[in-house]
Nucleic acid binder design. Sequence first.
DNA 1: GCGCCCATGTAACTAGTTACATGATTCA
DNA 2: TGAATCATGTAACTAGTTACATGGGCGC
Lengths: 198, 198
Amino acid sequence: MATTNKTRYAILGMLVMEPMSGYDIKKHIERNLSYFWNENYGHLYPILKRLHADGWVTKQAEENEGKPTRYVYSITELGRRMLADWLTLPVERLPVRNEMLFKLFFGDMVSVESNRQRIADDLTFADQRQKQLEKLEEELRAELDRHKDDVEFRNNGIFRFMTVRQARYAAQAHVQWCRECLDILDGLEDVGDEKEEA
Amino acid sequence: MATTNKTRYAILGMLVMEPMSGYDIKKHIERNLSYFWNENYGHLYPILKRLHADGWVTKQAEENEGKPTRYVYSITELGRRMLADWLTLPVERLPVRNEMLFKLFFGDMVSVESNRQRIADDLTFADQRQKQLEKLEEELRAELDRHKDDVEFRNNGIFRFMTVRQARYAAQAHVQWCRECLDILDGLEDVGDEKEEA
DNA sequence: GCGCCCATGTAACTAGTTACATGATTCA
DNA sequence: TGAATCATGTAACTAGTTACATGGGCGC
């Protein structure tokens, strides 16, 4: 049950959009899902091979002189069914492991400055991300508006919209928390029995 | 550089608090860090062995008749230094993989009801978690108040406080997002060309 | 009597990462 | 001239999970 191999479904998901090569799959994921998903070649290619062996996808060679042969994969009916089945399964709750919180938990073993630096970096990162997502959200919103009569388009776009919103909510909350922490650390500094302070 | 083996540091972190057995380490993590960290025996015991071989911890046998010998581990000076060094290192940004968002992204491949159910479950979970964390936060706050003159205690407690806050902010944001999604899905329902609806 | 807690660990496995290997084309 | 993009993959590795094995004590 815990042996889900999500890479399988990530591949299938891409192939639902259109047939493509392993290379394309990776690029598509990078371009469209990177804020919540990713894959790497070393895992992707072997899994693609297995999907083919299992009949979840078909493979078609495309010769290109000078370049390696390009193999274009398409999802089969079986593959589509397997994906749809998996999509209805409840999300597997993975054991949490938040390295940032772990390090912060032991914050009193290092200098206040070290803690502040970490959180400041995090704030910068989350803030940037938040802005990117804001932009993406606006784009999607505009696109939805343009297609307000195309039911199928809307029905698809609305889900993408929701995923972006989630990431934005998370980024926003993180920004707020970072700011609060920096304030707390400011009040803590004067105690300073650690390294720095020179 | 990416070969960090965080279990090593999780173990060391527990041993900084007090010397204990592998079993105790697991239990302590469960009781104190479970909202952002976890370990399992199958990994913990072998790593503990390696830490011992590397001289980061020492081991002391405690015979108990009827029970397996209890081995109590203590952190060494070297171990303490290795932990402190790691704590100052920037947090490794792991590749994101959010199964929930992935499934939602392909939401139009399954029924609206299936999507709603998933988000409703998530809302229930996040809401409960949020309440637990709220309680924990109040407890920590009270404890900090009681020890307001003990600088060392405060300095340690404040970091724990910050970790709980982070988890709470995240849970809160998630609750909000779930509610928003349920609203969106309500507006979507009438299009229904999927299974259910019987 | 049943099941949970204490307490140790190993073996077999899966998932995922990184580095390696190859090589043409295009653009700055 | 050098880097990026297209395009395939394999090999060696690490981290982490699950299932197994053992067995007394304690409370309901």
